[in-house]
Design a protein around this nucleic acid. Structure first.
Length: 490
DNA sequence: TGCGCGGTGGTACTAACAGG
DNA sequence: CCTGTTAGTACCACCGCGCA
């Protein structure tokens, strides 16, 4: 049986479908961050049902789901949630189906904020599947999140969601969908040998998440052929990891990535560094004590949880602040974590206004993020606008030191992200020992922390992990800053 | 004066990268 | 999945120039 999601994988890259079916163990595990994404999608699905008050929920998947769907239709139901249809080797579970006269209108709910490339084919697959099982389809719609909506009071389903009529686009795409479905079915049935041959001729290596996993089976000349199709960062990563050898990359492309020597050095653990001492000294001379090292953790909900928020607006629920009052002084630490299921904006802003001095530089990593959050906080909490704006005026982006090339190391692999810079500049600080490993994980932990159903014991553990992670982030900045200062004096 | 060519510059779009 | 920025590219109008 060809499912809708597997069909969409096939459209992305034909080898993906074969791999999903035959080598599922290669699939990346579902971590907390990915699970959160799914949860957000489910929340939007649930909300979209409010657009159709008298819907009947259809339980079950595959054959059981199809049986339940058939009996609901036979019973006279006219609005179906999650009905399943199977026919002619394909199966799909729709979101919402509404009877209009003699035919059924189809609604596909997405948590995206607009129409994406795959949505038409998504609906086209469903349309084919429904027609194969003898259902007459009328119009086909996409329901997506409206990111212009601002919550005031109870969330209005008709405000937070937008419905787009894609009937014409889907009809136009039907012949292509039918052809591709036939091709996908053939791919599904390929033998192991034929499947491996398919991998070697992968049609979309640039976007295929499997490439690093199966690259070992690809002939060298094939790698040479696909290298120009890869995004530069990905090619660089694969070269650094040794998945692709420098000799298998076209010379001009390799040259533009720093040449074969860069990757040989990286593997031989003889990194190339470039430190602009005078530039660093000039840069840090402008900083004013006390130095504040600030980091936020945020949560973005597709359906806004609080008044004044738009869909996907980042709610700041936590910060960590390290303060250095004078050069070589003792490091102080302040932190805040909002653990109730209410709008964290006011408590966070109030604590911050208390913890941060009215003078002194505020050092962050990737200024845009924290500065934008402060702007939003100022809008949400007008009484604290002055201290929040003041923070932005004193902000200094430590990432710019790397971005502007004042401190470079080949082991950064061309990236200026904290994840890449920290292990090189301050190897002693490791994220691995914590349960919460990065910002996305932290964002995943917050709804669980604020959920009244979470046990006290679990909350305590979550609180500890969230605080520890955020603290480590600012500590990392402090250590990186010290390392940069030291480098400027050597 | 009209036409085509090539360089310039400004905009409009896209991909990548940073944060969560 | 999102937002926001930036770097690179693609495109087109425009202008000066040579030439008929």
């Amino acid at each position: 049986m060809l499912t809708k999601s597997n069909f969409l994988k096939f459209l992305e890259c034909s080898c993906q479908l074969w791999l999903v079916k035959n080598m599922p163990h290669l699939l990346p595990p579902i971590d907390a961050a990915l699970q959160r994404l799914f949860d957000e999608g489910n929340k939007v699905d649930l909300f979209a049902k409010k657009l159709f008050p008298r819907g009947v929920e259809i339980a079950g998947f595959n054959e059981a789901g199809a049986r339940n769907t058939a009996s609901a239709i036979a019973g006279g139901a006219t609005v179906l949630f999650q009905p399943t249809f199977t026919g002619n080797g394909i199966t799909c579970r729709c979101d919402i189906l509404v009877k209009r006269g003699r035919s059924w209108d189809l609604y596909e709910v997405k948590s995206s904020t607009g129409q994406k490339g795959t949505h038409v084919m998504d609906l086209a697959f469903q349309r084919v599947c429904l027609e194969e099982s003898g259902i007459r389809v009328g119009k086909t719609f996409l329901v997506h999140v409206n990111n212009q909506y601002v919550r005031r009071g109870k969330v209005d389903p008709f405000g937070v969601l937008a419905t787009v009529n894609l009937t014409q686009e889907v009809k136009t795409a039907l012949p292509v969908a039918r052809t591709q479905i036939a091709r996908a079915k053939k791919t599904l049935a390929l033998s192991t040998k034929a499947g491996l041959d398919l991998l070697k001729a992968c049609s979309a290596p640039g976007s295929c998440p499997y490439l690093p996993l199966y690259a070992g089976t690809i002939l060298h000349e094939d790698v040479y052929a696909i290298a120009p199709g890869l995004p530069r960062a990905r090619l660089r990563e694969l070269l650094a990891r040794g998945v692709i050898a420098p000799k298998n990359v076209p010379p001009d492309l390799l040259e533009s990535l720093g040449g074969a020597a860069a990757f040989k050095r990286a593997r031989a653990k003889k990194p190339a560094a470039n430190i602009d001492r005078e530039g660093l000294a000039r840069e840090f001379a402008e900083l004013e004590y006390p130095l504040h090292f600030l980091d936020y953790e945020t949560f973005a909900s597709a359906i806004p949880d609080f008044d004044g928020y738009r869909p996907y607006q980042q709610a700041v629920f936590q910060y960590s602040l390290h303060v250095l009052r004078k050069p070589g002084g003792r490091l102080e630490h302040k932190e805040f974590l909002h653990d109730a299921s209410t709008d964290p904006a006011r408590p966070v802003a109030a604590a911050l206004a208390r913890d941060i001095a009215s003078a002194g530089s505020v050092i962050v990593w990737n200024e845009r993020f924290e500065a934008s959050r402060n702007e939003e906080l100022a809008r949400l909490v007008p009484s604290l606008r002055a201290p929040l704006r003041s923070i932005n005026e004193r902000m200094y982006d430590l990432m710019q030191v790397v971005k502007r090339g004042l401190y470079l190391d080949s082991r950064f692999e061309g990236s200026a992200s904290l994840k890449k810079v920290l292990p090189v500049v301050v190897p002693s600080l490791s994220y691995g020992s914590l349960n919460v490993r990065n910002g996305e994980m932290a964002a995943a932990g917050w709804p669980e922390l604020t959920d009244p159903r979470t046990t006290a014991k679990r909350k305590k553990a979550l609180r500890r992990d969230l605080l520890a992670y955020c603290k480590l982030d600012t500590l990392a900045m402090v250590e990186i800053y010290k390392a940069f200062v030291k480098a400027s004096k050597e």
